[in-house]
């Protein structure tokens, strides 16, 4: 590894540590520190680490395999599909006993992805039509979710906010650790296949020329991402734009799109950004709490607009 790269890794890891320290100790009531840390802040830190890294990796892999720089679980409607699935699943008792994994969420995410892949022919995946369709699917799922919550649960309206804006405070230590573990596991699987994903960088027409099966790789990726996003959404609701912004930042930062470094960097970067956003959401609104999804969207949505407008230029690589 070159010296420059080592420096970059050191920088990202430092950022991660600083975010983690902020998240643990910012505005901590020291008279009761050990209890608060153990019961509230450490689980929350773990959750933010797991979800942030998972969403960032999901965004990266979706952008790569669909050859669409605007793809991510949120803009494609996968997150809303998972939220709808999770809400229906938990009312029907589909919740698995361990660590809050909700089958419904995974099913919802898979369904939305399959519908999107059906609706878009191969050529149109890199175009805006895929994002437009994703946003429409997302709106449909969000409306269905609201209706379902209100009808099935008298205090459902409040829970809707949880699903739509994300909340890291409800997750326990075990579930937080599971999220981290799942995210690390799926990320390592992607990382061991980094050559395959590099073959997607010239667009789908050349994937097979580089000796990689387009359909098989896409299918496996879709299933793994749905699992990961389903798990995250069922634990913390929808948190948007982490998956969009982090891979873009990391690509700029590394000056390369190759996956050998993109994957670990996006993993670490996603974790630090969500940990930081959560610490902010927690500290700024004190004693109330801002929903972390609102914080990421506040930064993420304008960034999406920027990327959308400047995409043509950034795609041709003018820095």
């Amino acid at each position: 590894m070159s010296r420059e790269l080592k420096k970059k890794y050191a920088l990202v890891i430092t950022a991660l540590i600083i975010s983690a320290l902020l998240s643990l100790f910012l505005r901590l009531d020291f008279s009761n520190a050990s209890l608060i840390l153990k019961e509230l802040r450490v689980p929350r830190l773990l959750t933010a680490f797991g979800v942030g890294s998972a969403l960032s990796i999901a965004g990266l892999m979706l952008q790569t395999t669909l050859a669409n720089p605007l793809a991510e679980p949120y803009t494609l409607g996968i997150a809303s599909g998972a939220a709808l699935g999770a809400a229906i699943g938990s009312s029907l008792g589909l919740k698995l006993p361990f660590m809050g994994l909700n089958f419904g969420a995974v099913l919802g995410a898979v369904m939305v992805l399959l519908i999107l892949l059906r609706l878009t022919a191969q050529g149109s995946r890199k175009s805006d039509s895929m994002i437009l369709l994703g946003i429409m699917v997302s709106l449909t799922c969000a409306s269905l979710l609201s209706i379902w919550m209100v009808l099935s649960d008298p205090v459902g309206v409040q829970s809707v906010t949880f699903w739509l804006l994300g909340d890291l405070s409800r997750v326990g230590l075990g579930a937080g650790a599971t999220l981290c573990f799942a995210s690390a596991l799926v990320t390592s699987w992607f990382w061991f296949q980094y050559r395959k994903y590099d073959a997607f960088l010239m667009g789908e027409g050349l994937v097979e020329s580089f000796g990689v099966s387009y359909q098989t790789t896409l299918r496996i990726t879709v299933v793994l991402i749905s699992l990961l996003v389903g798990l995250c959404v069922s634990a913390v609701g929808m948190i948007g734009f982490v998956g969009l912004i982090v891979p873009h930042l990391v690509r700029r930062f590394l000056g390369s799109s190759r996956h050998f470094h993109m994957i670990p960097m996006s993993f670490l970067g996603g974790a630090s950004i969500l940990i930081l956003s959560d610490a902010m959401a927690h500290a700024v609104g004190e004693p109330r709490e801002l929903p972390v999804g609102a914080v990421t969207a506040l930064v993420g949505a304008p960034a999406f607009i920027y990327l959308f407008i400047h995409r043509k230029r950034s795609e041709v690589g003018v820095e």
């Binding site: 669409n68 050559r195 590099d198 960088l201 010239m202 667009g203 994937v207 990689v212 690509r251 795609e315």
Partner: peptide
């Protein structure tokens, strides 16, 4: 040939194939 991402010629030539 277009890449949706910013990919240098060096990266493209050095990355080898998927197998």
């Amino acid at each position: 040939f277009h890449s949706p991402f910013s990919l240098t010629v060096r990266d493209l030539l050095e990355m080898g194939n998927g197998f």
